[in-house]
Design a protein around this nucleic acid. Structure first.
Lengths: 242, 242
DNA sequence: GCCATAGTTATCGTATACGATTTCGTACTC
DNA sequence: GAGTACGAAATCGTATACGATAACTATGGC
């Protein structure tokens, strides 16, 4: 759990990618490799994960691959049916709704818990990342925008006092990455709003706003993206909205 | 994930226990068996899970057992170190704090999301369970009290519209069960408060209080138990409190 | 021409086997 | 007597092998 695909900055991310993450056991290798392929979108949702084939690709036997798949299943990235096989999960718009809603709650709490521990240096870093995000909007670079978005929140969360909550945040992000790679639609205007909300959030933290206020703002930040998505989504999904 | 040890009522729980849960694959069997032993306290925290031994006990080979252990690791019930082995995790008071805090947030959200969907029948059932809990206090039956406590909240959550959140609740409960089996200390008076808070919660739901109010009340309900624990805990843990 | 059924193939699930690593005990040295 | 080094036992990690299950295909009957 120490080496989630998203718990690192954008630069490190690509570096680790190139290296192939060949640390530790073969099981670990397989886990990292398959996870990376899912998160980066090489294996898109619905993709059939044939154990023997993956094993051959990675130059290991099927046993460690099975183990890796099972771990990914526990994280929700993979669906594993008995005697049928494993497929990359995550296409379902309903799943997107569930994940975003959960993330909204978790991120809200994570931000509120972290806020008192964020110093001016971290604030400055976050602001710099946010400025870069604005640039991405002008040059239309949604991929980098997404990566920076994670970096922004990583800065906020890096001192989160509760590792369980941080872990849940990372799991949610991985989940979204897998979905985004195929089905995510860029909602017009939402990205600009998002950047503005980041700045507002930073100001709340700087001014030592009370925990509830920060929590609500952070929660709302994620929920707004969900709302924007829902405004475009089919009615069947909208009906599920709470 | 459909058959968590806690997602069922107290009676069913013991029944499934006796039956040995011999559904499906051997891997599934091993998973259910080991999980049950951890949750019920047969395997206490720190217990060394030797793969070969478990395999022999269950009459299967080590491969499915490994898989099961890995899944339990992903759920936080087991710690698995390379070339060392697996041990039941959960003794650390700090872990207790993290888990309770996370659960406080998750249960708060789960209650708020479920509230509009809870009908009068469910309310009545919950009230009946709560009455039984009062009985347990008079006859001092902490084990049954704990089981009923889960039943109470299960009734509230059974129609929770977001399965991800429900899953997180169950994981937290399992985690607590494993901890409770060894280190949990009954805090004097807290149980009585808890029962009163249940009733207050039901009244909020009946009166269609707004989501925020319900969420805060539910969150506070869990947090109060944590506070009671912390009042008895060593200073080192208290320092970690947020 | 279409449906049902039998055979084939692909893939999964698990057992067994063996090499790798760690731990523990013992003997040897200082 | 204490510490270190060596060796044996226990346990883990992974490869290979084979039986079991499900998907696919082809053949025959209607």
């Amino acid at each position: 759990m120490t080496e989630t695909a998203v718990g690192i900055s954008a630069v490190e991310r690509s570096a680790a990618d190139a290296a192939g993450t060949k640390t530790g056991s073969k099981s670990e290798q397989a886990y990292a490799a398959v996870k990376a392929r899912i998160v980066e979108g090489t294996y898109t949702p619905g993709y059939r994960l044939v154990l023997a084939k993956i094993a051959e690709d990675l130059g290991v036997s099927v046993v460690p691959v099975r183990e890796a798949i099972r771990r990914l299943e526990a994280e929700g990235l993979v669906k594993f049916e008995r005697n049928i096989g494993a497929t990359v999960s995550g296409i379902d718009p309903t799943e997107y709704l569930y994940t975003m809603q959960t993330l909204s709650i978790i991120e809200g709490a994570a931000t509120a818990l972290s806020a008192p521990l964020i110093d001016s240096v971290a604030i400055a870093r976050a602001r710099a990342v946010n400025a870069e995000m604005r640039d991405c909007l002008e040059h239309f670079d949604p991929v980098r925008f997404t990566a920076l978005n994670q970096d922004f929140h990583s800065v906020l969360f890096e001192h989160c006092p509760n590792p369980h909550i941080l872990d849940l945040v990372h799991r949610g992000w991985n989940r979204l990455a897998s979905i985004r790679a195929s089905t995510f639609r860029f909602v017009p205007g939402r990205a600009h709003e998002s950047v503005d909300e980041h700045e507002a959030l930073l100001q709340l933290i700087e001014s030592n706003a009370d925990a509830d206020t920060i929590e609500q703002a952070a929660r709302r930040h994620r929920a707004a993206t969900l709302d924007a998505y829902l405004s475009l989504a089919p009615a069947a999904v909208q009906a599920k909205t709470i």
